[in-house]
Amino acid sequence: MVHLKHVRRDAPWAWLKAGWQDIIRAPRVTVGYGLIFVGAGALIVLGLNAIGFASAVPVALSGFALVAPALAIGIYQVPRAIERGEKPRFRFIISRFPSRLSQIGFLSLLLLMLFLLWVRIAQFLLVALAPDTPLLPGPFLEYALSDPAGLSLMVIGTAIGAVLAAVAFSMSALAFPMLVDQDVDAVTALVASFKAVIGQPFVMLTWAWLIAFMMAAGSAVFLIGLAVTFPWVALATWHAYRDFSPEAAPSASSSASPSA
């Protein structure tokens, strides 16, 4: 059983404000962390273009959104340092490893499986609905927006991607910050995330839309914007976790007093 606090309906905006304040306090650490993943994303995009699979770039970018919560665990050391009254430094990210690495790895594997499922679904849809789709970016976009098969591919692919994104969000909304901050297992962290989404759907739907908008906006500017929006969303997620303050209730066996 996991207990959560009730948060205000406008809480997502407060989380973004708090995350931005963290960036202002430690711009080199936070933006530097974001640039690492911008560089990795740029290499993937260049690689796909080099082998003639530029049309797979949108799938890769949407896949990044699925696994991004797992990639953000290092940035949580910034607000933790601020809470302790310390000056955030990049060495905190690489030296202060969470004690629950195995549980974080398990949850990361679940997100990776979602990403691989999305890749397989995208491949299936491409073959089943639009086998004649051109792979170059310009012709692909023209085909997707003008041909009925291309339009079907876009609509169905977007709908399925949205469902997978919703599952990933529900799994990770609070889970990774909780695993970094508390000595709990992955199942408990997953329960906390799902309970927050189910218990306060308006708040979490608003938060999900804000995340989607910020990640899309960051990706639109040749991925450079992700250097800011990625750590910003991650830091705001930490403040969302703090706002909900999930607390795992002791089990009946552990709370029962020993018999005389």
Rank of each mutant, 00 (worst) to 15 (best):
G32V: 11
A234W: 11
R8K: 07
S170G: 15
S102H: 14
V228C: 08
A175R: 00
P88W: 07
R25A: 15
I73F: 02
V221N: 09
W15C: 14
I104R: 11
L129F: 10
G157K: 02
I73W: 01
L107I: 07
W20I: 13
D243R: 12
L46P: 00
F244M: 09
A144P: 00
T30P: 01
F115T: 00
P58M: 06
I104D: 10
G157Y: 07
P201V: 10
S62C: 12
F194G: 11
L210C: 02
P258W: 11
L114A: 02
W15D: 10
G63Q: 12
R89H: 12
P137F: 05
A192P: 06
S95I: 04
N49G: 12
A192L: 14
P12A: 03
F213G: 09
I94F: 12
M113S: 12
S62R: 12
L101C: 01
L46S: 13
R96F: 09
F92G: 08
A72N: 06
I24A: 11
G41Q: 03
L223C: 05
V233K: 03
F140H: 14
P58G: 01
L48Y: 09
V163S: 03
K17T: 14
H3T: 12
L145A: 15
D185V: 08
A72H: 08
K17M: 11
V78S: 05
W13Y: 11
L16R: 13
D243G: 14
G150H: 09
K87W: 07
L151H: 08
V67I: 15
V31Y: 05
R9I: 11
W13Q: 05
L205Q: 03
A159K: 11
G225F: 04
I44P: 03
L43Q: 02
Y241F: 15
D132E: 08
A60V: 07
V119G: 07
Q200L: 05
A252M: 15
P88R: 04
Q77H: 10
D243K: 07
L112K: 04
V127L: 14
P231G: 08
P79H: 00
G74V: 09
V127H: 13
A212W: 06
Y76N: 01
Y76K: 07
V57S: 12
A65F: 08
D22G: 06
W209Y: 04
A18N: 08
N49M: 13
S219F: 11
F90S: 00
G150D: 09
H239N: 08
S251N: 14
P69T: 06
G52Q: 13
F124A: 13
S245G: 13
V180H: 13
I93R: 00
L16T: 03
V67Y: 02
I23A: 09
